[in-house]
Nucleic acid binder design. Structure first.
Length: 506
RNA sequence: GGCCCUAUCGUCUAACGGUUAGGACAUUGCCUUCUCAAGGCAGUAAUCAGAGUUCGAUUCUCUGUAGGGUCACCA
């Protein structure tokens, strides 16, 4: 048995943004092509001029590229089967349509919209399904392009077919009707165009969503009428919204894929997450790199039942991916979300690397950096905070129940300051024998004994709030190391002054 | 309503007729602790219902129920 080269395609319509459901379809087709050294085609199905949205094609391409999906043929790069825009392939459709007309398998639809509407209404009133073929004209006019062209279904009957993901499927004769091949505006319908394109492009496997099952009998009739062999069908399970109630669609809260980029998600995480709604290789693993997905992907493991899009788990997955990347990559991603009033500070560059070490295990996506620690941003790492006496004295936070006063707090801060001044100016690392060694005395070495002596809760709370100005902040030692000895001293001094002022006032 | 598809913890899922029905997210509790997190440990939690086939059914069949899709000159 010869191995036919596998050719898959993703064929979106340019009617707006790419949502996660569409991306998953593209992803599966792509994974399958790449796994099997096949060809991936991007084709744009722009046969509906009414619904077309300006800029969609560029947006779609950008979305796919962001998650790392590429293609061997497409509207942007051309290829042996160009063009890849259906609106530029009208001659093809006309040619095949004409052969169907010649065979007596297609005919022009003479009815007006009003007449059709009446047929539908009558059927509804009689509680019968509406079937155009029950009203098929006996002597249809010659097809001149101004009337819709319909396929003539000769003997509607129950059909069965095999789907690589779904198994054996079937449908009753009611699902077969004389459907429109070419619209009165000269453009083909999806039902017709995609079949011609797949034929001409040699597509071997069609990946598509669940909702196409019900129109598959029509496709089968068309393959038969054209006397061509059909590609394999791979029907994917639906993706539901978070409530599990409705198929996720643009109208039902599905987000633009690029929104996730704007929030600072990593494309690897999105791909990992989407791959696992409707597919799983088996076993207990669920964190997969794109390369691993390419290696593992098989159609047999595609599910039949739908899944919900649950972004809580996506967040977890994204965090796992964020922990894996290098410091430099992390920094590159993070800096997009650091507000300009911070990134332009003189203190920013010397401190940002240490800050990243501190916040790294806390973010689920990069934009969260803007609302860390009680809704604040990272300001206090770079700018001395403003103080609030209530927070500084926040006695209800003291586990040991010790009451702090302006006076006692000022004394503690003064003591810390006194000890810290004894530290060498650069209390970080120094080079010795080619290796980085840390000074024996660090900020922590100085502050810890004071905390032990005066009460950990009080001292560490005091230092934390002094350095950050906030109730919720990182470990005061880490904070102090990040801003350095001098800045730590300066902030202690500022807090002390602040408190003295308060004492005088009261 | 007609036709069609689907059915395992709250969620994503594992288990190709034989498992104490496994993992992960979420959740709960504990540990750690100077706040908030993070981390570590532990726990709660599922085969939609009813028949049948079988020594044995989450797995196969049927019926019911529930959810979803589709019935366009949209894709």
């Amino acid at each position: 048995m010869e191995n036919k080269k596998i050719i898959t395609r993703f064929a979106p319509s340019p009617t707006g943004f790419m949502h996660v459901g569409g991306v998953r379809t593209a992803l599966y087709a792509w994974l399958f092509a790449r796994k099997n050294n096949g060809t991936m085609i991007l084709r744009i199905e722009d046969t509906d001029k009414e619904r077309e949205v300006q800029g969609s094609i560029a947006h779609i391409i950008e979305s796919l590229k962001w998650v790392g999906i590429d293609w061997d043929e497409g509207p942007d790069i051309g290829g042996p089967n160009a063009p890849y825009l259906q609106s530029e392939r009208l001659d093809s459709y006309k040619k095949y349509a004409q052969t169907l007309v010649d065979k007596g398998l297609a005919y022009a639809d003479p009815y007006s919209e009003e007449e059709l509407e009446k047929f539908r209404k009558d059927a509804e009133e009689n509680k019968k399904p509406f079937l155009y073929r029950n009203h098929r004209p006996e002597n249809p006019p010659v097809w001149d392009g101004t009337k819709p062209l319909r396929l003539k279904i000769l003997n509607p009957q129950k059909v069965r077919w095999h789907d690589l993901a779904r198994g054996d499927l079937e449908a009753g004769p009611e699902s077969l009707d004389d459907f429109i091949l070419i619209k009165s505006d000269g453009f083909p319908t999806y039902n017709f165009a995609h079949i011609i394109d797949d034929l001409e492009m040699g597509v071997t496997h069609i990946f598509r969503a669940d909702e196409f099952i019900s129109s598959t009998p029509k496709f089968l009739a068309l393959y038969e009428a054209l006397e061509i062999q059909r590609p394999e069908f791979v029907t994917l399970p639906p993706i539901m919204g978070p409530d599990g109630k409705k198929k996720l669609g643009k109208r039902d809260g599905a987000r633009d894929l690029l929104d996730y980029r704007s929030e600072g998600y990593l494309p690897e995480a999105i791909v990992n997450f989407l791959a696992l709604i409707g597919w799983h290789p088996g076993g207990n693993d669920e964190l997969f790199s794109i390369q691993e997905l390419k290696d593992l992907f098989t159609i047999e493991k595609i599910h039949k039942s739908g899944g919900n899009f649950n972004d809580v788990k996506l967040n977890w997955m994204n965090k796992e991916n964020m922990l894996k990347i290098s410091h430099d990559e992390y920094k590159k991603n993070l800096e997009i979300f650091i507000p300009e009033h911070i990134s332009t500070l003189d203190t920013y560059k010397p401190r940002i690397d240490k800050v990243i070490e501190i916040i790294r295990d806390r973010l689920e996506y990069f934009k969260q950096v803007q609302e860390m620690y009680d809704g604040g941003d990272l300001e206090y790492f770079f700018i001395a905070p403003l103080y609030d006496a209530d927070i500084l004295l926040c006695s209800e936070k003291m586990r040991k129940g010790v009451e702090l006063t302006h006076d006692s707090l000022a004394k503690i801060l003064a003591k810390c300051k006194l000890e810290l001044e004894k530290l060498p100016e650069e209390n970080g690392g120094f080079i010795e024998g080619g290796e980085v060694r840390w000074n024996k005395e660090s900020i922590k070495d100085v502050l810890w004994p004071i905390a032990e002596l005066e009460g950990r809760g009080i001292v560490l709370w005091a230092v934390r709030v002094t350095l950050s100005g906030k109730e919720k902040s990182p470990d005061p030692f880490i904070l102090a190391e990040a801003i350095g000895r001098d800045e730590t001293l300066a902030r202690l001094q500022r807090a002390e002054n602040f408190l003295k002022e308060k004492i005088v006032l009261s």
